[in-house]
Amino acid sequence: MDFQIALLLGQDGITNGAIYALLALALVLVFAVTRVIFIPQGEFVSYGALTLVMIQAGAIPATVWLLLGAGLLAAALDVRLALRAGQPGRLVRLVGWYVAYPLVLVALLYTLPVKDFPMIAQILFALAVVVPMGPLMYRLIYQPIAAAPVLVLLIVSVAVHVAMVGLGLLFFGAEGSRTPPFSDARFEMGPVMVSGQTIWVVVSSLVLIVALYQFFERTLYGKALRATAINRVGARLMGISPALAGRLTFFLAALIGALSGVLIAPITTIYYDTGFLIGLKGFVAAIVGGLGSYPLAAAGALLVGLLEAFSSFWASAHKEVIVFTLIIPVLLWRSLRGRHVEEEE
């Protein structure tokens, strides 16, 4: 290996690491607020990327029907609750969000020539379809069992993941796809060429991380999420309902997932099940941070990205094995060093 190859691999590692960092942050966030180990995080990556592919191909993305179906289901549940609680005023808002919003999206996708829109508009459409699935997923699947033990939540997550992969195959087919890069620019950095897309990925990830940090430090809703993660009972006593915190968290997780998918779609070919592996690597990174520390998780993500890049050079057949084996020494180290904490609640 010479210096130039090392630089290339390093560039690859950092690019992938940036994506893993985003996913790791989402996983840590979801776990801290809702105690859900969010296995389906990666599915949002595939859904985001492939929805964009379908939009660019001029098709109506099949995911929008899923959104509509989930919306109808959630509306049925919540309308019943609102009627029973005697709050008919909430009906309009519920139906508006759950049913009218997907319908408007469908109408827009049918009538507008989205295929010929600039890429940024297409990306916004893809996000508008995929991201609301996060809060809907929380409402339909996790909210009814919010008080269940962590293990039950994990099992449900596995089920959701399997279901989403299956639906992904149905929606997008078995073929992999790529999207055109955001920019064709190339930059010379010393001996290596850096593609515009790489810069996009790294810069977007950094911007998103800083934005998330600002959200949690500066805004009331960000603080409310942190408060829920720190002390659930205390947060409820302030009127921060776990359901609200859960929906907001899942919104962020879905946004991070779908955005990651859109970012990497020009670099790697995305299949309906690609997200799972990417999500798992984010998970390894989150584990390095003990599912609790954001900076450690981000550092872990960079480590995972670099390890993957360099092992693909030396032992490309075993690169996944090497990356996932990383989890064993980390867990050993953490369990030997850390004190055992009884599970709360």
Binding site: K223, A224, N231, M238, I240
Partner: peptide, 16 residues
């Protein structure tokens, strides 16, 4: 909220 500042604790008191 032990890992948050006194002021943030107070601000959250007015969340609702």
């Amino acid at each position: 909220f032990g890992e948050m500042t006194v002021e943030d604790n107070l601000v959250l008191g007015a969340f609702q």
